[in-house]
Design a binder for these strands. Structure first.
Length: 690
DNA sequence: AGCACGCCGACT
DNA sequence: GTCGGCGTGCTC
């Protein structure tokens, strides 16, 4: 019988598979096993030895037979990746216009892709002994209120592909719904399968995606405690290679029944996946922003569709894409109207008009009074300022010099504790100049206010208060973020200053005041998604306070927003806690302006030493192919044009039909490759930052 | 992307 | 004389 020719994909930007011959039988064996699709193989590629994956076989090859090489070894210790998993990778590769090998291989743990064989037996063995299973006694399962129960039952009872928006404000108990729906799915799976052995071999798996795993340690602990004896695997970028391999194998083997992970977990091998849950589905971190620029949310929905299983998208402020689907009836909307926490009230949101109440040290007198009150009562306050550093720029009053970065289209940010100017885009650092570099004036002024300057001002204003700043700079050392959050939870902090780092996940029991300092810039951003994101962020920050029951005899938690635009409708919606009308009106605007989700977009980016070179490439790209029904805009420099001495430009492509856009992109990418330009370019499908 | 080959500039 | 710059060409 003729040796089949195997198609193999490799981690290379070349957009094709490569044909190889089956390995020849080893000496004494009668027949060598033919590698199956989904198996990893070791082979020689050019002058290199690499690991690839078999994706299929054929009788023929377009490549001359004498050029075909033999596969050197088959990694048959690993169960082949399932056809469904390969189909997912294929879909992602096609949809995001990347070579299949660049989806398949980087998604696997590094240890599986290296030439030195690791002992998979040992890695599996180690699994059961470590923390993946929790053998604590079961803890109390909270009773669900009516709408929670209804939601959990609807999720667990859903048949086939069932996308469900679980819509409920902070404190409405979404997590409890996830957990009880998950429990039902795990339990019913073992009961319903007729053959007990089949059930034992194929227990249901549940994928739970969260925006950032380190910000939700409570959830992981909660899950382990609630499912004793059930193996839980976690998958996120913070894992060491060994851990990642163990957890990945636990998922791949089917032993792990709950897989908790960040966006990358959507590409995990999950042979018995029965339910997907995406917490905070609107969160921007579900979008991968380099390499394969996928949306984990969108891929998860595709995966659920492929497997004909339910998928839950949970949020208090759903993305407009999801909201749109819920309104059109494509997604089922389950709303949690009641507060799950007894006596819990939504925090009262108030606006402070900065034109009337002029701030000193960035704080209006109203906010200062509120802080004072909390200090007297021994309660905690959070000041949210999404700008790290001391001041975003320093300037010379005499000649107008400002601290521009020499390599980027940005300012050098003043970092006072380190006595440095730092560019947040290329990480260039300079000592603070003693005098103006152009005119010699020694009086350089910081303009604007970052978290460091706010901290300085607060310590002057409230010398007795314990002030803690949490941002990317204060938490560089490993474990320091956790330590900082712990001290807030212990009550060692009176006033917490934070960037978006503090906005997610944490539930601060003693916090009764949230001050929001500089949100206005997003109101007039050129990015049409800015207001959607601002609303979500404000709701999320507001949720740090007033989550738990109103304190005995105490006043309700309060959120104060300092703004120059108190009339803005976005704030009115925030005060009313009314996402419904806000989202619906944003959707109307989007429809009228022909913006997503009413149109589909792709973005071609180009970078070169000279902006002109990048623009010229994009102009050629725009005209290299007929494009009926596709809108191609003019190339424009990116907002942040220069980063680290490279100029960047972009070209926006739009089409009201997703399939038409996809068809065009496939042809277009082929044409762009054929141009063989020296300009570095990349294509992003469904871009979020435009 | 790697990794080769290949053809020109400043060094032990 | 060689070490090394990065242009361009190939990988089943």
């Amino acid at each position: 019988m003729k040796q089949p020719i195997l198609q193999v994909v490799l981690d290379t930007p070349l957009d094709s598979s490569f044909d190889y011959l089956s390995p020849s039988p080893a000496g004494d064996e009668t027949a060598a096993a033919i590698p199956q699709a989904g198996q990893l193989v070791q082979l020689s590629f050019g002058r290199r030895e690499v690991i690839g994956m078999v994706i299929g076989s054929s009788e023929h090859s377009d490549v001359p037979v004498d050029k075909l090489k033999e596969i050197q070894a088959v990694r048959d210790q690993l169960k082949p990746l399932a056809p469904e998993w390969l189909a997912l990778c294929r879909f992602a590769a096609n949809y995001y216009q990347r070579p299949l090998g660049e989806v398949v291989l980087p998604g696997l743990p590094k240890n599986l892709r290296t030439l030195t064989t690791v002992s998979l037996d040992r890695a599996l063995k180690k699994l059961s002994k470590t923390d993946e299973t929790h053998d604590a006694t079961p803890i109390d399962v909270p009773a669900l209120n009516a709408s929670q129960q209804q939601a959990a039952d609807a999720i667990a009872g859903a048949n086939g592909f069932a996308p469900i928006l679980l819509y409920g404000v902070t404190g409405s108990g979404k997590t409890e719904v996830y957990l009880q729906a998950a429990a039902q799915v795990l339990a019913s799976d073992t009961e319903n399968i007729e053959s007990a052995s089949e059930a034992a071999e194929n227990p249901a798996q549940i994928l739970i995606l969260v925006p950032e795993i380190n910000l939700t340690p409570q959830l992981e602990g909660n899950i382990r405690a609630r499912f004793p004896g059930v193996m839980v695997a976690t998958l996120h970028s913070g894992l060491a290679e060994g851990e990642r391999l163990r957890h990945w194998l636990a998922a791949h083997s089917g032993q792990a029944r709950i897989i908790l992970g960040t966006r990358l977990a959507v590409l995990a091998s999950l042979p018995h996946l029965k339910l997907i849950i995406i917490d905070e589905e609107h969160d921007p971190s579900y979008k991968q922003q380099e390499g394969l620029r996928y949306s984990a949310r969108d891929l998860a929905v595709w995966r659920a569709h492929q497997l004909k299983i339910p998928i839950v998208l949970g949020s208090a402020t759903p993305s407009l894409e999801t909201w749109h689907h819920a309104q059109s009836g494509r997604y089922r909307k389950l709303e949690l109207r009641e507060r799950a926490v007894k006596n819990a009230v939504l925090p009262a949101v108030r606006l402070i008009d900065m034109e009337r109440d002029k701030p000193t040290e960035g704080l209006t007198s109203t906010l200062v009074a509120a802080l004072k009150q909390r200090l007297q009562r021994g309660e905690q306050s959070l000041l949210f300022l999404n700008r790290r550093g001391y001041a975003p720029v320093i300037a010379c009053d005499a000649c107008g010099w400002v601290s521009n970065c020499t390599r980027c289209t940005s300012f050098m940010v003043l970092h006072k504790p380190e006595h440095r100017l730092r560019c947040h885009h290329c990480s260039l650092e300079l000592r603070i100049p003693k005098s103006c570099p152009t005119c010699g004036n020694v009086d350089l002024q910081p303009l604007g206010r970052g978290t460091q300057r706010l901290e300085e001002g607060l310590k002057k204003m409230f010398p007795e208060a314990r002030v803690l700043r949490i941002d990317a700079d204060s938490t560089r050392r490993k474990g320091s973020a956790q330590a900082a959050f712990d001290s807030v939870h212990r009550g060692d902090v009176d006033i917490l200053i934070g960037t978006q780092m503090v906005a997610k996940g944490h539930d601060f029991q003693k916090l009764t005041l949230v001050g929001i300092l500089n949100p206005d810039t997003a109101l007039f951003s050129h990015d049409y998604r800015a207001s959607e994101r601002l609303f979500a962020q404000l709701m999320q920050v507001a949720g740090r306070a007033g989550r738990t029951a109103q304190k005995e005899g105490g006043s309700p938690s309060e959120v104060l927003i300092q703004t120059r635009y108190p009339q803005h409708p976005l704030y009115a919606a925030v005060i009313a806690h009314d996402y419904d009308h806000f989202a619906t009106s944003l959707l109307e605007e989007r429809q009228q302006a022909h913006l997503p989700p009413y149109i589909f977009q792709a973005l071609l980016r180009a970078e070169a030493r000279e902006l002109e070179t990048a623009i010229e490439f994009l102009q050629q790209a725009a005209t290299c192919l007929a494009h009926d029904g596709i809108i191609i805009h003019d190339p424009i420099p990116m907002t942040m044009t220069r980063v680290a001495n490279v100029d960047r430009a972009q070209l926006l492509i739009e089409c009201p039909s997703r399939p038409a856009l996809q068809a065009f992109l496939t042809e277009w990418v082929a044409a762009l490759r054929a141009m063989k330009s020296r300009v570095k370019w990349s294509l992003e499908v469904d871009p979020v930052d435009i």
